[in-house]
Computed example of a mutant assay.
Amino acid sequence: MWKKWVFASVIIIGIFFLIPYSLPIIFAFLTACLLEGSVSWLVKKWNFSRLQAVISVFTGYVLAMSVLGYYLILLIVQQTITLSEKTPTFVKDLYTTAIRPLIRRWEFYSKDLPVDVMKSIEVAIENTITSIDVFLQGLMQNIVNLVTAVPGFLIEFLIYLIALFLISLELPRLKASLEAHLKEQTKRKVYLVANQLNKAGIGFLKAQVILSILTFIMAFVGLSILGAPYTALLSLLIVIVDILPILGTGSVLVPWAVFAILQNNTFLGIGLIILFIVITVVRRIIEPKVYSTSLGISPLAALVSLYIGFKLIGLLGIIIGPAIVIIYDTLKKANIIKVNFKV
């Protein structure tokens, strides 16, 4: 008996070791499972062969992803390059138009302070601005380097597409091979757990996509109305920081609004604050409904798992945290985990 447990432990450890090197294959398998419903529908409804159904669904998936990805990446890359060219002068312009006049006004109201103190404060602020300038230039250089890494990504993406096509063709055989090693009772539990996890996993991705698209649309429309530059790039940035439970849209919009007001651009500053309020209120109204409908777990459980996962292991915890809650809830529904006690 112990040999079986040792063998199973070795397999599990080996799988975890290989996961970082097999991400394209893993994503291909997950995508194939998501597309399997469409493939089965074509086979049953229109009497397609397995090969015809897989080719049809695979082609439609690739075309949709290519069109969407092309326009989105093209827009973001163009705005990133333009922004990287203007970054070296951005901070200094901000200092000249906003911070320096503020210092002058403060000097006017602080005439009683010694001149040396005022000069020290100004030098400290200038050094801070220079540091921020260097940081932003480095950040934009990293973004440009990320863009230059596209060829390597394309190779990984090609492997992903080939694996997706082959796994979609072989999925019924893989399923039959797995069933051959399972007892009937174990098979029922595995299918119950797999169906629950599949439903919850799709629901989690669906919830994130819905909320991200909604945030992107509101940010893009709002920034366009305000006449802000780089609307697509900034809207994407807002979506990214909004996913993080520690940050949120306020970490981008509120400082930006303050700087705009300091630069005497009251219209943009107030508009950004209103946009922040609108995005926050709309998300808080819709978020509980989206999570409860898509995930099947309470919004509180989703929020706590996101926060704790992020605090423990960083960005990866945003996915792993809710996944653990979903797996626990699924195993509980399948009576694999039983919690029945009284204190």
Rank of each mutant, 00 (worst) to 15 (best):
I313G: 00
T82K: 15
L331T: 01
I132A: 08
I132P: 02
L178A: 14
H181K: 12
K332P: 01
N198A: 08
G296C: 04
L223S: 03
V325R: 05
V67C: 01
T87G: 02
V241K: 14
P245Q: 11
T96S: 15
N198R: 12
P245V: 06
L102K: 06
W41T: 09
Q208P: 02
G271E: 03
I159H: 02
L18I: 12
A228D: 04
H181Q: 09
D93T: 14
S49W: 11
L295I: 04
T215E: 01
I243D: 05
G321W: 10
F7K: 11
L102V: 02
R105S: 10
L42C: 06
N264L: 13
L192A: 11
T293L: 14
A28E: 04
A28F: 07
G227S: 06
F48G: 05
Q137H: 11
G309L: 10
N47V: 07
W46P: 00
G250C: 00
N264I: 03
K3H: 09
L35G: 05
E36C: 07
L161Q: 06
N47R: 15
I274S: 09
S251Y: 05
L316C: 04
L236N: 01
T80M: 13
I76N: 08
S38M: 13
V43P: 03
K311M: 14
P245L: 10
G309M: 10
V10Q: 01
V62S: 05
R105M: 10
V150R: 09
V123M: 12
I308S: 02
S9N: 12
V43L: 09
G201S: 06
P172L: 01
K86H: 09
K311I: 13
T280M: 04
Q263C: 08
F135V: 10
L136T: 06
L182Y: 00
V67N: 01
T97D: 14
G296E: 04
L272Y: 07
V6R: 14
N335E: 15
L253S: 02
I246Q: 11
M218Q: 03
I285A: 09
I99L: 08
E170V: 08
K332A: 08
E156R: 12
L262R: 08
Y291K: 11
L166A: 11
L253P: 04
L211S: 03
I15Y: 12
A8I: 12
M118W: 07
L75A: 11
Y307P: 00
I308K: 02
I202W: 14
G321T: 07
P245N: 12
R105A: 10
S305R: 13
A32V: 05
A257F: 02
L272A: 06
E170Q: 11
S177A: 13
C33H: 12
L182C: 00
I326M: 15
A28M: 07
I270H: 01
S38I: 07
P114I: 06
K332H: 09
P299K: 05
A53H: 04
K119H: 13
P255Q: 04
K189P: 04
A28S: 13
A200W: 03
L154P: 03
P255I: 02
A260N: 02
I273W: 06
A180H: 13
L94S: 15
L72R: 09
L211C: 00
T59F: 14
S298A: 09
V241G: 04
S131N: 10
D242C: 00
W5M: 10
L164T: 06
K199L: 08
A98C: 14
I103T: 10
F7G: 08
V62K: 02
W41Q: 11
N265F: 04
K4C: 07
